[in-house]
């Protein structure tokens, strides 16, 4: 029996994921100003892709994969146009100012991680994507997602243990 995949219901997908995508973009770009536009652009690209016959296995993951490219492209354009006056320098924020010293220690460790590992942490803890979904969104093997995530958690755990050897 041949199963023909039906095109996904984009309206329903929009209702379910637009808030998450807006949050994703606002975190990436440091504000909500352009987030809504980027969400629209992401769904437009998704619709074009589906129209051209693409039937992704994990819709949400595929959508985040598109969002990632859209975000990169928007940032590059923004950098070219030098419209960065509303952005806050990263160095001033990365310094610890949380009430919980453990969170500060974890942030310091995250700050040292390569971009890919940070993206994995963000997609896992902020968007609640599964290993398979993260792999599809980032276009890398599931094994890589798993190993990078484990490595990041292990580094953070070791850092916390260094700071407080009695508790960990």
């Amino acid at each position: 029996m041949i199963a023909i995949k039906q095109p996904p219901n984009l309206e329903q997908l929009f209702r379910e994921t637009s808030a998450d995508l807006a949050r994703y973009f606002s975190r990436r770009h440091g504000g909500r100003e352009s987030a809504d536009d980027l969400v629209q652009e992401t769904f437009l690209k998704m619709a074009q892709s589906i129209e051209s016959g693409k039937r992704p296995e994990h819709l949400r993951a595929y959508l985040f994969g598109i969002a990632r490219h859209v975000s990169q492209a928007a940032w590059r354009q923004k950098s070219k146009d030098s419209v960065l006056e509303d952005s806050v320098p990263i160095q001033s924020i990365a310094a610890g100012d949380s009430s919980d010293p453990r969170v500060d220690a974890a942030c310091e460790m995250i700050d040292l991680l390569p971009a890919l590992q940070r993206e994995i942490l963000d997609l896992r803890f902020n968007q609640n994507l599964s290993y398979a979904e993260m792999a599809e969104a980032l276009d890398i093997p599931v094994g890589t997602v798993r190993s990078r995530l484990h490595n990041a958690i292990s580094l953070i755990r070791n850092r916390l243990a260094e700071d407080n050897p009695d508790t960990l």
């Binding site: 975190r27 990436r28 990169q72 990263i90 990365a94 969170v103 803890f125």
Partner: peptide, 15 residues
């Protein structure tokens, strides 16, 4: 702690 760090510091994940 990682979950708290990720949600409380979005600037660590900016483009």
């Amino acid at each position: 702690v990682t979950e708290m760090a990720v949600s409380s510091r979005p600037e660590l994940f900016r483009e």
